[in-house]
Each structure stands twice: as structure tokens, then as C-alpha cells.
Design a protein around this nucleic acid. Structure first.
Lengths: 120, 120
DNA sequence: CCCTCAGTGAAGCTTTGACTTCACTAACTT
DNA sequence: AAGTTAGTGAAGTCAAAGCTTCACTGAGGG
């Protein structure tokens, strides 16, 4: 639903993802949907904001592939899509790894120093 | 450095964290710092923005505990703090778990149906 | 058929956020 | 001492983001 005519300004997938989760209300939506699917009205009631606002947040979440929705009759049911979190997890893993490599290089350096001392 | 006089508007730790990573330039800073520490000037050169802007981004990253910095002489050296990613990981894990529980409940339901069919 | 309820599009409001420039301080260099 | 160079504070600009209200469509219920 509510796909923008033009591709979003946010270029990358990761960008859309982090931006989507950067808003507290959208995270609350995700948290709620992670427990059970919900309609727009229900989400509006829970977050205490207008249905219009929910619709806007939903569009952002769907662009980030964190949620999906289908309309049956007049009610739209929104769902959480956990697979959408994958790129986020990848980003974290990547930076954790970078860090570990830094530690490893440090270890090597220290080992070198130690062995030098042993030689002395 | 640059601690705000008043506590940030962003209340929770998770909030600050997601918001900090919601900006592409700040993520680039983190990526760069994950490889090696860098000065403000170096980051400004890499990202092609003013040193002032780097200072502002740095403040946000430090508030989110994703980075730290120390000034030696006139140069400030910035460092990535990987431990700051923990709450982010926790958030993901939590929502993955919620999802799994949903799947389990679904499994139980299906099992119920199946055994009913078996009885029929 | 009329009424209500769920959701949407359009517009506009207000705040936040990401920069910049300018001016200034403090630390090296020569 | 004089000239760079690194970083900062203050202020201002500009666009994006989060909401709201209003008007309207369409589905269901009496």
C-alpha cells in the first residue's frame, strides 16, 4: 500500500531500515505487531495518534520491509515482518567483526613485542 | 566532550541509539572509526563535510555511547565503542523472540487441528 | 436507504535535524 | 613573535519529518 510514485530519497536498504526504526512510535508499532497483527484503528488507539499518522508510519515500515498489510473489506490488517531485520543484524555483525579484527591485529602486535622481549 | 547542559530530549538509550544510526553520515563515521581511530579533521575530509558538522555528529554518537574521544594537544581522536551496540542487538533479539513465540503458538494451534483431524 | 465506521488523500503546521559560515581560542611551527 | 592548523561556539538557513484537521470514499449494519 501507499507506495510513493518516486523511489524514496533514502537510497539504500539499510538507510531506510535504520531511519524507520529511528522513530519511537514506529518502534512501538513494530513491538505491538510483533505480538499480534493489528488494524490501523487499533494501532491508532494504542499509540494515541491519528489513523492518518499510523498510515504514514506504516508506509515507512513497509518501505523498510519491516511490515506488510492487507485490506479485507474496509479494515487493513498490518503484520510485522521479522525477516526485514536481517540487514540490520548484518550491519551489526559486520561492525563487530571489524572490531574483532582490530583486536586481533592488536594481539599480533603485542605478541610481536613479547617475542622480541623474549629474544632480548 | 560536548555534553549537553540538559539531558537530551531523546529519553531512552535505545532511542538515542537508533536515532544516532539513523543518519547515513554518522554510520559512515562509525564504519570509518571501526577500522581505526581518527581525528575530527580526518573525518571531515573523508565525509566531505565541515569539521563543525563532524563535531555535532560526534556529540550524538557519544550520547548514544557508540563513540568516545579524547583531546591530546589540539587534536581530538575519536574511537568507536562497539559495546554501545549491545542494546541494539538486544532489541533485535527481543523481537526475534517475540516472533518465534508467535510461530510456536501457531505450531501448537496446527498440532491441535491435526490431532483433531486424526481423531475424526 | 441511511448511518456509522475504517481508512485515505491533500494541505498545512511546527519541530527537529543536518548543515554552513564566521569568529575565536589554543596549540604547534618556523 | 608571527603564522598555521585543529577544533569549537554561536547563529542562521533549509529541508525533512511527524502530526493534525478536513473532506471524502467505500464497506457493513439497521
Amino acid at each position: 500500500m501507499m507506495q510513493p510514485a518516486v523511489e524514496s530519497v533514502r537510497s539504500s536498504r539499510v538507510d531506510r531500515l535504520f531511519h524507520a526504526l529511528g522513530d519511537a512510535n514506529r518502534r512501538r508499532m513494530v513491538s505491538h505487531l510483533a505480538e499480534r497483527p493489528a488494524s490501523v484503528s487499533e494501532l491508532a488507539a494504542v499509540l494515541a495518534i491519528s489513523k492518518t499518522a499510523i498510515g504514514q508510519h506504516l508506509a515507512v515500515l513497509e518501505e523498510a520491509k519491516l511490515a506488510s498489510s492487507t485490506k479485507l473489506g474496509r479494515v487493513r490488517t498490518c503484520q510485522f515482518d521479522p525477516a526485514g531485520l536481517a540487514p540490520l543484524q548484518d550491519w551489526i555483525d559486520y561492525h563487530r567483526q571489524e572490531w574483532n579484527e582490530r583486536l586481533n591485529r592488536l594481539d599480533d602486535l603485542i605478541s610481536g613485542i613479547v617475542s622480541n622481549e623474549d629474544c632480548a
